[in-house]
Computed example of a mutant assay.
Amino acid sequence: MLSWVVRRTRLPLLSLRCVDCRSESATAGEGRFRVNANGKLLDVWLLVRCVSCDRTSKLTVRERVPVGSLDPAELDGYRGNEPELVASMLVDPLFARRNRFRLDWTGAWRLDTPSARLEQAWPVRVEVVFDDPVPVRPERLIARGLGLSRNEVLRRVKCDVSLRRTTRAGFTFTLMAGD
């Protein structure tokens, strides 16, 4: 069985309307948090920047939480602007829903495939693993990975998920021999 991996190459853009220029694209750039203390309560925001006008906006991460209720390592992550923490916040669907944005993954991921020859034993079984929840249609991903047309993929591939429905999780498919 072959294994393919879908990996993030950069943070995805956010589909979020700018209050100044009405553009729909924003970026988390390097990923910076802002932590604000009000007595014994903390507010934490993720700062994002409009791609068009460079205006900075805040996405609420934590709101009015007691200092003692936060894990010290998590608080250090916010203060240190840890890239893994920024990435995990952005791909969290609850965070996106609460802050009313969608992720635009265009150009932000790649497909790593082994350089194995497919002329070997048929049928060929392939497992696809996602490092991040990149939304992609399996038929397009398989066509890209094998260098086949999408019609050829629909004809030759048996898959454990619908080929025409967007998925964000791993799946397995079997490639049958061509005619």
Rank of each mutant, 00 (worst) to 15 (best):
G107F: 01
G77I: 12
D71P: 07
L46M: 06
S15Y: 02
R34D: 03
C21I: 09
D71G: 09
V19W: 12
R150G: 01
A169K: 10
Q120M: 12
R117V: 15
R62K: 13
V157L: 04
P93M: 07
P133T: 04
L11N: 12
R125L: 08
K58Q: 08
L42Q: 11
P123Y: 10
G29E: 07
S69V: 08
V61C: 06
V134D: 00
F130C: 12
T174A: 09
R79S: 00
T56G: 02
A177V: 09
R164C: 00
E152H: 05
E152T: 12
V44N: 05
L42E: 11
V65H: 01
V61Q: 00
L163H: 11
F173V: 03
G68E: 14
K58Y: 05
W122V: 14
L118K: 06
A73V: 12
C53Q: 00
R100H: 10
A169V: 05
R97T: 02
C21E: 01
E82G: 02
G170D: 07
D112T: 11
E119K: 09
R17A: 07
P66C: 06
E152W: 01
W45Y: 15
L118Q: 06
E127C: 10
R64V: 08
K40C: 09
P66T: 13
L47W: 02
V67C: 05
E74D: 10
L46G: 02
R168Q: 15
A96K: 01
V44D: 08
R17Y: 06
T172H: 07
R55G: 07
R22M: 12
L11S: 10
R79K: 09
C21H: 05
E63V: 03
R34N: 05
E82V: 11
S15V: 01
T9I: 04
I142M: 04
L14C: 03
L111W: 08
M1E: 11
I142T: 04
W109P: 05
W122C: 11
L103N: 00
R7I: 10
N151L: 10
P138D: 01
T60F: 02
D76W: 04
L75A: 00
A108H: 05
P83D: 05
R97D: 11
M89K: 12
D104Y: 01
T172K: 10
S23Y: 09
L16T: 01
P133L: 06
E139Q: 02
Q120A: 14
C159R: 11
R110L: 13
R32M: 07
S52C: 03
S15K: 00
N81Y: 02
L111R: 11
A121M: 13
P72R: 00
E119Q: 08
N99K: 03
A37Y: 02
A143K: 03
L111V: 10
A169F: 05
K58M: 06
V6T: 07
W45A: 07
R117I: 14
A26K: 14
G31C: 13
R62D: 03
A169E: 13
P66K: 07
L85R: 15
A177E: 15
K40L: 14
N81R: 05
R165N: 13
T167Y: 04
